[in-house]
Amino acid sequence: MRRYLKSRRAISGAVTALILVIVSVALALAVAVFAFGLFGTFGSSGQVQAIGTPVVNVKNAKNQGYYNIILTVQIKNSGTVAASVQSVSIGDITVAAGNANLVVTPSSIPGGFDGTLNITITNQPNLPGVLQKGNIGGSVPVSITFSEGSLSPTLTLQGVLNGTTA
């Protein structure tokens, strides 16, 4: 029996190392192809970003005691998928798409868009402190949630209160 084991030959260390290197490279290549393919899909689904500082204005509505809040922001959609606004928060006021008090122009932001997005929240009976006259020139927290294909990115920004007739 001892003679039988001595006569068997095993794979040399160099051949084993070469096989391990080839398998490792093949696995790394497969992972890289999967990762770049996956990230490429996310990258092509659109990217909305704000350019510059959003400007917020508050105006008296025609009916006394109600206010319209106007947000103006430069937007760029560097992707290929159109985006639309799903909700907007200005100060402590949040309004979702479909609410009659939310007016967004343009209503859809096509791929390649680079321009002004105007958002108006109408008929607000109360204004948070950041939208009062005492905060003109001050910071206003702004959050805009978009729908871009299967994604829902949110831009969290700091706007400037430009003027108010409140």
Rank of each mutant, 00 (worst) to 15 (best):
T16M: 12
A10Y: 03
I136Q: 13
T41R: 15
G163N: 12
P153F: 04
S7L: 13
Q74A: 11
A166C: 07
N63A: 08
T41I: 14
I11L: 15
V104Q: 07
A30V: 11
I19H: 00
A32N: 11
Q47H: 12
V23G: 01
G43P: 00
V103K: 14
V15G: 00
D92E: 14
F113P: 04
S84N: 12
G98K: 11
Y4F: 13
Q64I: 09
A61H: 09
V130W: 03
S12L: 06
A32S: 11
P153Q: 02
N68T: 02
A32E: 01
G111A: 08
A10E: 06
N68I: 03
R8M: 11
L157N: 05
V33H: 09
T41Q: 12
Y66K: 08
L71I: 03
P128H: 07
F34N: 04
G46R: 09
S84T: 06
G112L: 12
S87Y: 06
I136E: 14
T105N: 13
S143V: 06
K133E: 00
S78T: 13
L131D: 03
I11K: 15
V95I: 15
T116L: 15
V56E: 02
V81K: 15
R9P: 00
S24F: 14
V55H: 05
G129I: 08
A61M: 07
N99Y: 01
N99P: 05
L131N: 09
A26R: 07
T72W: 03
L38D: 03
I136K: 15
V15E: 11
V15I: 10
V58K: 06
L161G: 04
L27C: 08
A17N: 04
Q86R: 14
N135H: 08
I51Y: 03
V48N: 05
P106H: 02
S107W: 03
Q74N: 11
T156E: 12
S78C: 04
A26F: 13
T41H: 12
F146K: 06
L5V: 08
S12P: 03
A166H: 06
A96E: 04
A50T: 01
A83D: 01
G46N: 05
S12A: 06
I109S: 08
S139E: 04
G112T: 05
A82M: 03
G65H: 08
N68S: 09
L18F: 10
N77E: 00
P125K: 08
T105G: 02
A17Y: 01
A30L: 15
L151C: 00
Q74D: 01
G98F: 10
I11N: 04
L127K: 07
G163I: 00
S152T: 12
A28D: 01
I109P: 07
A14S: 06
V55E: 10
T116M: 15
T16S: 09
